[in-house]
Design a protein around this nucleic acid. Structure first.
Length: 464
RNA sequence: GGCGGCGUGGCCGAGUGGUUUAGGCAGGGGCCUGCAAAGCCCCGUACGGCGGUUCGAUUCCGCCCGCCGCCUCCA
């Protein structure tokens, strides 16, 4: 049973499901206002690993993650690019899904878009007005947060602190500086929707309330996102749901930053690396491995050094795939724990893995158990215990797949006839004891990007 | 100012009141190899500082130092 840190309580607690055997998850996705960076990638990977692990343990998972396609920066971005807003957001979103696919992240079961839910957002705001917890001002409609029981649950800040910290906005009509906008009245040049308060557009926090409750229902199991969404975004989502008499998320999970030289990566600081940049120069699986190597709540440093380190670890895993011909276990789809009945799998190792994962998704510890298997498999094979070795190797591959990290048995182009000819020629040279010729052929292959390895079965090559 | 997190061996990074070790990368030695590569074995005996609790603390408590984050729209 999975124990997870809950942002609301600050404690690690058993994740309890509303419906037995089924998990409903809502993760705040991307605002499609530009290029996604490493932080967005980490978020996607962290929740992908959670989702895959729940599937691995045999649960049904309903995973919803939204796209925010109307927002201030989107309006500005489209204007700056000189293109219509829908074209701007569509292009950014399309690129995001390509990146998601490259990262091996499973697509959500549902991907609601804010602009498709404006009617229901208007309905929610109207309801909050009717309940007397929201009020209209000259420039919009606001939620009166001091009327919401438990406001500050996620922020873990005294209300006074939030109040004194609140930035003073132009609108002095707000009853409390903490109150936040549910509906923004139209400004010139902005896209608008009709509402009882005149044309305008929804505030940011409202969309996720409406979409999560619509698609997952009251009291859904888990709500997640990046650490920076805790306050105000998630606090304000919860406030609206509670004020509307709805039961909101039962559990809150947030992932930590990607940092650059110790500082949070963010667009405002300008210290971000885009996912495009990273994926251009490294195997996407190495970023997943890098993310898995540290706990999801800790910050991670992404530097050329840490990426290289992850790539070296990945190479060790792939080497296992090659050595044991695990080509049929290269799935990038979800896998399910086969249980102790499967003689090909080391059930005890799977248990060790699951113990680590159940402890608040201790992926570094889980990964340690996988590397233990790698060493055991290689060691057994070296000692001539092929059956035992295969079992360990298969188990390692299974657990890698469970983490969304498919092993590779090769690059696929080893069969190139010209390359194969050189490999054969080298085998002949070696058989004849012509070491000079063999070394020359190795140099040629290496120049072509191959790493040459001689084994009992002859020369083997792989991509460097 | 308020609230919170973190400081582990050359690097990354888990975990734990004490007997055998996380794991990965890098490094040294060995086995294997024509030489390599890959793999395996061995090695470095780490837990910011000062006190306290304890038979015993890296692990609990206090203080200090350092780094980081949040305090209204940033994953």
């Amino acid at each position: 049973m999975l124990r997870l840190h809950d942002t609301a309580t600050g404690e690690v607690a058993l994740l309890r499901f509303r419906d037995p055997g089924r998990v409903s998850i809502y993760v705040c996705g991307l605002t499609v206002d530009g290029q996604a960076h490493l932080g967005h990638g980490r978020m996607a990977l962290v929740f992908d690993v959670l989702r895959r692990y729940l599937l691995f343990t045999g649960l049904d998972v309903n995973y919803v993650s939204n796209i925010t396609d109307i927002e201030d920066k989107i309006i500005d971005g489209a204007a700056a690019a000189g293109v219509p807003i829908d074209q701007f957001t569509a292009a950014n979103e399309a690129r995001w899904w390509e990146l998601i696919d490259t990262l091996g992240v499973l697509r959500p079961d549902e991907t609601p878009h804010a602009t498709a839910y404006v009617d229901r957002m208007v309905a929610l705001v109207s309801d909050l007005m009717a309940r007397g917890v929201a009020y209209e001002t000259a420039d919009g409609v606001y939620l009166s947060v001091l009327d919401v029981p438990g406001y500050g649950l996620l922020a873990h800040q005294p209300l006074d602190s939030l109040r004194t910290g609140a930035r003073v906005e132009a609108d002095e009509d707000k009853r409390s500086p903490l109150d936040f906008v549910l509906w923004k009245k139209a400004k010139p040049g902005e896209p608008t929707w009709e509402s009882p308060w005149g044309p305008g557009r929804p505030g940011w926090h409202t969309e996720c309330v409406v979409m999560s409750l619509d698609l997952l229902g009251d009291g859904f199991d888990l709500h997640g996102g990046g650490l920076d969404l805790i306050f105000p975004h998630h606090e304000n989502e919860r406030a609206q749901a509670v004020a509307d008499g709805r039961e909101f998320a039962r559990h809150w999970m947030h992932n930590g930053w990607v940092t650059v030289e110790g500082e949070k990566m963010s667009k405002s600081v300008g210290n971000f690396t885009t996912l495009d940049d990273l994926l251009d120069r490294s195997d996407a699986r190495s970023y997943r491995l890098l993310v898995l190597r540290s706990h999801y709540r800790r910050p991670i440093e992404v530097t050329p050094d840490t990426v290289r380190d992850a790539e070296a670890g990945l190479a060790r895993l792939d080497e296992l795939g090659r050595r044991f011909g695990l080509g049929d276990l290269l799935t990038s789809g979800p896998v399910v724990d086969p249980g102790p009945a499967d003689a090909e799998i080391d059930a005890e190792a799977v248990t060790r893995f699951r113990d680590r994962m159940d402890d608040d998704l201790d992926t570094p510890g889980a990964l340690g158990s996988v590397f233990d298997l790698v060493r055991q498999a290689n060691g057994a094979a070296d000692a001539g215990d092929q059956a035992g070795a295969n079992r360990k190797a298969q188990t390692a591959a299974l657990l890698c797949a469970a983490l969304g990290l498919p092993l590779r048995a090769g690059s696929g182009d080893e069969e190139d006839p010209a390359v194969q000819a050189k490999v054969l020629e080298r085998d002949e040279a070696r058989a004849a004891g012509d070491w000079a010729r063999a070394d020359a052929l190795r140099a040629e292959l290496e120049d072509a990007g191959w790493l040459v390895e001689d084994g009992p079965e002859g020369t083997r090559i792989r991509r460097q």
